[in-house]
């Protein structure tokens, strides 16, 4: 690729700068992870290693609160991700297969705009909208809001995958007596599957992690993991917060990694564009 002299690694200060960035990015996370295993009531003084605060999470005083919040978070994330993925799959199919239609670029912008709107604006607007139409805030409002803001996140990997699938496969299917729906179900959908899967996982993680919008539309009494953590922190940081944060981090990283590998494996198993020559 680059010649040796142009290689970025040889630029002055490259190494220290890299280390500084990495430190700023990951040091807080690593410290939280380490201290979550601290057997001490203090959040800063290290005592000995133990799983005390993890035990506290599941069996301590706050356990019921965290459990309800976790159930809310996961159930909302699953339902929001499924709904958003279905909608995003339909949107991607329409965008990629309906040929050229009027307002195509506008549609594309409309699908992806929510990614650029400041989340606080969306949160306020959503809250105003719900109260304007007389919706009581609670579990359902969180779910609806999550479905909506997850759509663009699910759409991106699905559309990216679909872009790589040439239309000739569906034409071949129709040529071989498949109806349009059969061509979609038997050919396009399986080929899109890796994109759909990673769209789903991405939407799931986005929903699981969301705080701002959730905090606005949740109403009294209904908590998700991020809002319950925020609430606990306001009353003073106990080490169990570090334990629950670590768990949430592990789940998030796990899902994002899964999403990435699902896409990669799918691309390898069913290459849709490469044609091996002799």
């Amino acid at each position: 690729m680059a010649t040796k002299s142009l290689d970025l690694r040889h630029f002055t200060g490259f190494q220290p700068l890299t280390l500084l960035c990495l430190f700023l990015l990951y040091a807080p996370l690593i410290i939280v992870m380490i201290y979550s295993f601290n057997d001490s009531n203090s959040i800063t003084r290290w005592n000995t290693i133990s799983l005390r605060w993890y035990y506290d999470l599941f069996y301590g005083v706050d356990a019921p609160k965290f459990k309800t919040a976790a159930i809310n978070s996961v159930s909302i994330a699953i339902m929001a991700a499924i709904s958003a993925t279905i909608i995003a799959t339909m949107a991607a199919t329409a965008m990629m297969r309906a040929g050229r239609f009027r307002g195509k670029s506008v549609s594309f912008a409309l699908i992806n705009l929510p990614l650029m709107v400041p989340e606080i604006v969306t949160a306020v607007a959503t809250l105003i909208f719900f109260s304007a139409i007389g919706f009581t805030t609670g579990y359902l409002t969180i779910l609806i809001a999550h479905i909506v803001f997850c759509i663009p996140f699910a759409y991106l990997p699905i559309a990216a995958r679909m872009e790589g699938i040439e239309e000739v496969y569906e034409q071949a299917a129709q040529d071989l007596y498949a109806t349009r729906f059969q061509a979609f179900r038997l050919i396009l959908l399986p080929l899109m599957a890796p994109g759909i899967m990673s769209g789903f996982l991405l939407a799931f993680i986005i929903s699981l992690d969301d705080f701002i919008i959730t905090n606005f539309v949740k109403g009294a009494g209904v908590e998700t993991l991020p809002t319950v953590i925020f609430g606990a922190v306001k009353q003073g940081i106990k080490p169990n917060i570090m334990a629950i944060s670590t768990l949430l981090l592990v789940v998030s990283v796990g899902f994002v990694a899964l999403s990435y590998f699902v896409g990669r494996i799918g691309e390898k198993a069913n290459p849709t564009t490469t044609k091996k020559g002799e």
Partner: peptide
Amino acid sequence: NTVFQQYALFPH
């Protein structure tokens, strides 16, 4: 039936 230039074999 058609034999396509790029074959279009269903990859899955």
